[in-house]
Simulated assay, not measured.
Amino acid sequence: MTITQLKYILAVAEHRNFTVASEHCFVTQPTLSMQIQKLEDELDIIIFNRAKKPISLTEIGEKIVIQAKTIVEESNRINDIVDQQKGYIGGEFKIAIIPTIMPTLLPMFLKTFNNKYPKVNLQIEELTTEECIKKLIDGHIDAAIAATPLENPKIKEKPLYYEPFIGFVPDYHKLSHKKKLTVNELDSDDILLLKDGHCFKESILNMCSSFSSPNAKSFRLESGSFDTLIKLSKENLGMTLLPYLHSLDLSNEDKHFLREFEAPVPAREVSLLYNKSQLKMQLIEALKTTIDGIVRGAISFNDVKIISPIAQKKTN
């Protein structure tokens, strides 16, 4: 039994196809099949039911896959232990960021991180929160940045900052005369939201749930991007809410429509996520330290109204 054989088993268990699994393992399909067959013969069991399409795991196969994940993770931990002992921060590091955070946060920290840790091969992709969780649990990414709390027992969350909501209220709107908004003035039937699958939408719905009219209609319009919501709002289709950092990139003309909230200001918690069995802790800490520094610097020097976890604790 070898670690390589176990990795092949995990690949087939995930993709339910020998050809696809071999492509992800960068070996030929006959090589992968032969190694799995060799292990099955050694153990005198059948791991995969090859007669079914897609391929399925046998009862004993299900148990072996669970144990194989543990063994492969622990074998990878050896390299992690060595890297930490040497103080080495480098290698491949895969991170996912949700769509409502990536466009504003990534430009803030990417150049600084790359300059500080040139030996890290940072691979970044944009995923929904649900996709982030699945890939973290399956071990396909090392970390993610998303709105929290998620309360998933398999995921650890390290808060990075707290980002306020800000209203985008066009001149025609009933709240346009207000210098500052309050949460109890919001009408969920009048707010343009992102499509299902965006956690930002859920944050808004949770914030408005206590103040919605019992006869409120379903949302008239939902979009996949903040830019579209802004355009629709300017066409008299309703107000919308934005994360604060997104509002910084608006034109001076559009900033005229922004309305901040009175205290206590509603905000979303943005956190760094990783699997509880995560190996690359030195890289996770390096990323968190970099973003922490960017956030504190923005607060200190640029009057960016986001709140670091340290500042949050001081006010509680």
Rank of each mutant, 00 (worst) to 15 (best):
E59W: 00
E62P: 02
E131C: 03
K69C: 02
D80K: 06
A96G: 15
E131N: 13
T129R: 13
M102T: 10
K111L: 14
D83A: 11
Q84K: 08
I64H: 00
E126G: 02
I95K: 10
R77I: 05
E126C: 12
D80I: 10
K94T: 14
M102C: 15
P54L: 13
T100V: 04
L106P: 06
S56P: 02
S56Q: 11
M102R: 06
P99Y: 00
I97H: 08
I124V: 14
V72C: 02
N114R: 11
R77V: 03
I124M: 12
E59L: 09
K94W: 08
M108E: 14
I64V: 06
I95P: 09
Q85V: 05
D80Y: 01
V120M: 14
G91F: 05
K119Y: 08
P118L: 09
K119D: 15
K63C: 01
T100A: 01
K135G: 03
T70L: 00
L105M: 13
L122N: 07
E126F: 01
D80Q: 07
E62I: 08
T112E: 13
D83K: 03
N121V: 12
N79T: 10
S75P: 02
V82Y: 11
Q84E: 15
T70Q: 00
N76W: 08
R77Y: 02
E126D: 07
E59M: 04
K94S: 13
P118Y: 11
F109K: 03
I81H: 02
L122W: 02
K86H: 07
Q84P: 01
M108V: 09
T58W: 03
L105P: 06
L57K: 02
L110S: 10
T112A: 08
F93D: 14
S56R: 10
I89F: 09
P103Y: 01
E59N: 11
E92D: 10
I98L: 03
F93H: 00
V120E: 07
K116L: 15
N114E: 15
G90D: 12
Q84I: 01
L122P: 05
T129W: 00
E126N: 04
K63E: 10
F113E: 12
K119W: 09
K69Q: 04
M108I: 11
I89G: 05
Q123T: 13
I81E: 13
T58M: 08
N115P: 05
K116F: 05
I133V: 15
K134D: 10
E125Y: 00
M102V: 04
P103D: 04
E130A: 07
F93K: 02
E126P: 01
D80G: 08
N79P: 02
L105S: 04
P118S: 11
I55N: 03
S56I: 15
I81D: 07
F113I: 13
T128K: 06
K135S: 14
K63H: 02
T128M: 08
L105I: 04
